[in-house]
Each structure stands twice: as structure tokens, then as C-alpha cells.
Write a protein that binds this DNA or RNA. Structure first.
Lengths: 214, 214
DNA sequence: AGCCTTTCAGTATTTTTTTATCGATATGAA
DNA sequence: TTCATATCGATAAAAAAATACTGAAAGGCT
């Protein structure tokens, strides 16, 4: 069984996105150096990444067939059969994610929302029904929902996550800036804006220091 | 000049968040093994990370002083003097970020919004004025805004980014799933949900395959 | 007061990831 | 058809990151 590093996995959707643009432009083949010059990775890394998921050999002087690359990546990333997810915590961020237009191209289908606010329960957001958090145990199996998108306030995130796991959730996509204690058989992926911002502001500070010193 | 890897930088906000919880619980000291057991990193890594930003030595049998750790990290991450940012593209996601309650604790102050929609221009969102994208060149310097939070539709992202850079933006926090071509003197940090989702669904698939094989 | 244990700092090792090298080969031009 | 070359695949080298190890010291316990 091949092992993919986190960094490597993160690159595949970026390749795919780019290949779709290339295809849209009418180009049939793309070479590693050409990809490298646009995406900013080294051409060796691109070869390694693509070789890891594809059986097709690239052709000298031409590169790889864009159409096949797209098929391969979409298949590898599981975009062919979308996974079902529900948003828990229909606040500003939850609503934004429910309306996010790109998930359908990313193999994700949000099919429901959950909240504790009586004013929201029973309403619809982006065409999806909002249920009470109490109903998770019933609704998740019913709609075959495996992934919980967690967008509650920080203070109730752990409690809600526990509840979701009891209700059968297999994976949690956590947008809450809190460290959840999760059993090891549950998949968790944290979207930590503070971490992303830390990189940004560190780089920005380096830049400013550089400028000042010149 | 010390160099910090991306992974390492991402961990600091996570440490900080945890230390604040520890402080709130009344605990005065925290040891690396104790941090490790909660956050799931190795204690060696934690020592290395903390030694890289702190001059204070930890004390055998006690660990490090929580209060000092918090000060040190807040200072390192630049939370003491927030950087100013503006959201460009006041759609669902833009609105969500403008309302995001945690940025003020993360050294970021969103002070304005920009959009091209006449219905939005002149309005307020989360107490911040929405300007026309055309006004960026005037408004960014006026409010001393260095960071652009990009949440436009994909198709106009590049164009808007170019405009923001002309208007003096130094850094772009890009929430748009598109690869921007950015001059090397501008800082860019991509929040790529597709990449995050790729990790999640890869792990979920591995889990399911494992289950099936048992 | 002395001993045992925990944790530390610093260094070494291992592992992982990225980058570089090299011969082979298909392509497009002469 | 032949030649020059861009690109490939595979492997090797380098760099970076994570992990493990070691001796020292502080804290608490008897």
C-alpha cells in the first residue's frame, strides 16, 4: 500500500485544478517542466507525485495527456462519487460553507445542516434542511452521512463532536479553533485559520524587516 | 536569523490556544510531556519548538511557566499589535470572515470590505464599511491596510489580486480555489479547502478500506 | 539531609522529503 | 531517414524534519 504524505496529498487538488484549466485552453499534453513553471514546484517533485498515482508513462518531448491526468486525479481523489456531509453549527461560517459553490467539484455533497437554535431548525439554507442537533443520531444514518463539518462556537465544539461520533460520524472536518479530543478510529482534519495566518504574518514580518534593512 | 518551517509555524497558534486554556484552569506551570499528551506531538518536538522562540529555561520537574509562554508566543506571533486587513469579495464567505469572532485574538483586524456589487457598496457588514473595488488604491493606504483577504469568485480572483497589489497590498490571504500568479515580493498564503478535504477523504478512505478488510 | 524521579537541554540518529543526476527514448526538424 | 534535444524514469544525494538518546539538575518525598 502506497503511502502519501500530507504535503503530497495537498498538492493533488492543486494539480487537478490546473490541469482542468489547461484542458479548457485546448492543450492536449502537458510536461512536468511546464507544470513546474506555473505552479512553482520542482519538475522532479511533479514527476514523483504524478508517478505515484498514475500508471501512464509520460512521453519525452510531449509530457502527459491532460485528459488522462484529470481522470486519474479525479479518481484518486474520489471526486467521482461524492461523499455526503452535514454542517453542524449554522452560523456565518456554516452558512458560507453550505453555500460554497466549489464543493460539488471536490467530491463533497453537503446534504443537511444541524443547529441548536430553534429559529434556525426547520428552515432551509442553500436548499438544505436544518435539523436539531438532537436529531443527529437519527438523521446521519438515514442520509448516509459520514462527514461532519464542524462550525459551532468553540465552547461547545467538543460536546457536539462527541455527539456526532455517537451518531455514527466517521470523520470530522473541524473549522473550530479548538483542540478536540477524538478517538483514534475517527478521522479528523483541522482547518486552522490561526495556523494559516501565523505563516502569513511571519512571512509578512520577514518582508517588512527586509525592507527596513535596505 | 532563525528559520521556521511551515509546519513549525502552524504549531505555535495551537500551543498558544492550549496554554490559554491551561492558564484559565489555574495551572501555573506546564511540562513538555503534559503538552505532548494533550496535543499529540512528541515531547522532544515541543521542547524544540518552544526553545526556538523562548529564552526562558524550563525547570526540571515543573516545566515552563504558562504565563511567560503565553507572553512569548503572543509576542512571537505578533498578536500584540494587530495587522490590518480588508476582505475583498463580500459574498457568503467574505461575510463569514468579517463576522469571525476569533480574529481579534489572532492579531488580525478586518477594517473594511470591498466588492463590485452596487447593492453592497456603501453598506456595512459586521460594523465595517464596504467600498467599491475601484477605491482600493485610495482606501488601502488611508487605513494602512497591508493584507487583503481574497474571497471573490474564482474567475475574477487574479484580476482583483493584481489590482490589490497595485493599490499597495503586501500580502494576500487567498481563500479562492485558484492559482494566482503573484510577484515574488508579495506574500501569499493559500487556504485551500480542496487540499484539506483531500487529506480528510484520503484518510477516510483508508479507514473504510481497513474496516472492509477485517 | 539524602535519595529517587521527572523533566530539562543538548546532541545524535533516523526517517522523510526534496532536489539533483544520468542514461534512455520518443519526438520534431533538417 | 537521421540528428539534436526535450522530457522521461529511475536512482542517488542532499536537506530538512522528526524522533531518540544521554547526562545533568531541580523538585519533592521519606
Amino acid at each position: 500500500m502506497k503511502i502519501f504524505s500530507k504535503n503530497q496529498l495537498q498538492r493533488y487538488p492543486i494539480y487537478l485544478k490546473f490541469f482542468k484549466e489547461v484542458e479548457a485552453s485546448g492543450q492536449k499534453y502537458i510536461s512536468s517542466p511546464a507544470i513546474a513553471s506555473v505552479l512553482g514546484y520542482s519538475e522532479e517533485q511533479i514527476r514523483k507525485d504524478l508517478q505515484a498515482v498514475s500508471n501512464d508513462a509520460g512521453r519525452p518531448k510531449k509530457g502527459r495527456e491532460v485528459k488522462r491526468l484529470i481522470e486519474t486525479l479525479e479518481n484518486f481523489l474520489g471526486y467521482s462519487e461524492p461523499i455526503k456531509a452535514a454542517v453542524v453549527g449554522v452560523g456565518h461560517l456554516g452558512v458560507a460553507l453550505m453555500n460554497y459553490p466549489n464543493f460539488s467539484d471536490m467530491g463533497l455533497a453537503i446534504v443537511a445542516g444541524f443547529d441548536i437554535d430553534q429559529n434556525k431548525i426547520g428552515k432551509e439554507v442553500a436548499g438544505k434542511h436544518i435539523y436539531s442537533t438532537e436529531e443527529m443520531e437519527e438523521i446521519l444514518p438515514k442520509f448516509d452521512i459520514n462527514i461532519i463539518i464542524l462550525t459551532t462556537p468553540s465552547k461547545c465544539a467538543q460536546e457536539v463532536a462527541d455527539k456526532a461520533i455517537r451518531a455514527g460520524a466517521l470523520a470530522i472536518w473541524n473549522f473550530v479553533p479548538a483542540h478536540l479530543q477524538i478517538p483514534s478510529h475517527i478521522v479528523i482534519e483541522n482547518v486552522n485559520l490561526a495556523s494559516s495566518l501565523a505563516i502569513l504574518s511571519h512571512n509578512l514580518n520577514s518582508l517588512m524587516r527586509l525592507r527596513k534593512s535596505i
